[in-house]
Write a protein that binds this DNA or RNA. Structure first.
Length: 258
DNA sequence: ATGTCACTGGGGCAGTGA
């Protein structure tokens, strides 16, 4: 079973890129972030024609998350992150697919930091960690994947020293990410590549992709029994080189059957 | 600081978020 995550940066603007990637990569599950579209503008028919079922949680202009499946039923278990009824951002959707609970998240960017956006990021991170702990305690197989907007370590950023003041790499963000993983999750990409420089994002400025000046901010966290099933993990970095592409590349894991 | 995208309102392009 192949599960992927992809920050599409505008699902309608990137639709040709998304459809091409789905056709070439054929993930069984695809978690999408940054739809940048309200619910009624989700390209439901094009996704269906590509062979995928979908659930989505959209929002006008910003954010927005979706889970797509190919030949698998989706049972939605949560829409929106619990813990703050005043939070209006569409940043979390969760479903049970093929016996696995899959959480698809778009963690706040948090820049500029310090400031209210960074405070929102840290609060969101806390709420997410609480929910993650509950999922872990349930004993069910769980995958939490998406754009975490968190650079875990110096290995995960080109010229990390330039990112120390940025919300993606500030100490508070790194501490929050490490505390989350330390609940008992496995960072799938890092587990299979302990020392390798692997990026999932290259910004649009200064030919970052051409220079491979990237960041690793899209992550797969696996619960212990999913971790035992982990066969492979990778980044479809070539997709970042396509025309009219997102600034993120798709990331995926391959799991053995239960 | 720089730089480049997508989206919105409103009908060109500035403002916003990333």
């Amino acid at each position: 079973m192949k599960i992927a995550t992809y920050n599409v940066n505008g699902i309608n603007g990137r639709l040709p890129v998304l459809l091409r990637w789905l056709e070439e990569s054929t993930p069984d599950v695809a978690c999408l972030q940054e739809l940048k579209a309200p619910d009624e503008k989700f390209p439901e028919q094009a996704i269906k024609d590509a062979g995928y079922n979908a659930i989505w949680h959209g929002q006008k202009s910003w954010n927005g998350v979706a889970i797509l499946t190919r030949n698998l039923d989706i049972k939605e278990t949560r829409r929106g992150l619990p813990g703050d009824p005043d939070d209006t951002h569409s940043r979390y959707i969760e479903a049970e697919v093929n016996g696995i609970t899959i959480g698809c998240l778009y963690l706040p960017n948090g820049n500029p930091a310090p400031g209210p956006k960074f405070e929102y990021k840290l609060r969101w991170f806390e709420r997410f960690a609480e929910h993650a702990a509950e999922l872990l305690a349930s004993g069910k197989p769980v995958v939490l994947t998406g754009d975490y907007n968190a650079i875990p370590t110096e290995l995960d950023a080109y010229k990390a020293e330039r990112w120390v003041e940025d919300a993606l790499f500030r100490p508070e963000t790194r501490v929050a990410f490490k505390a989350l993983v330390d609940q008992g999750w496995t960072d799938a990409i890092r587990k299979l590549n302990p020392d390798k420089v692997i990026y999932t994002f290259w910004d649009y400025f200064r030919n970052a992709y051409g220079r491979d000046a990237g960041l690793r901010i899209d992550h797969f966290l696996l619960s212990p029994d999913v971790n035992k099933r982990l066969l492979a993990a990778g980044v479809d970095r070539n997709v970042r080189g396509w025309e009219k592409t997102s600034d993120h590349g798709p990331v995926w894991v391959e799991l053995a059957d239960a």
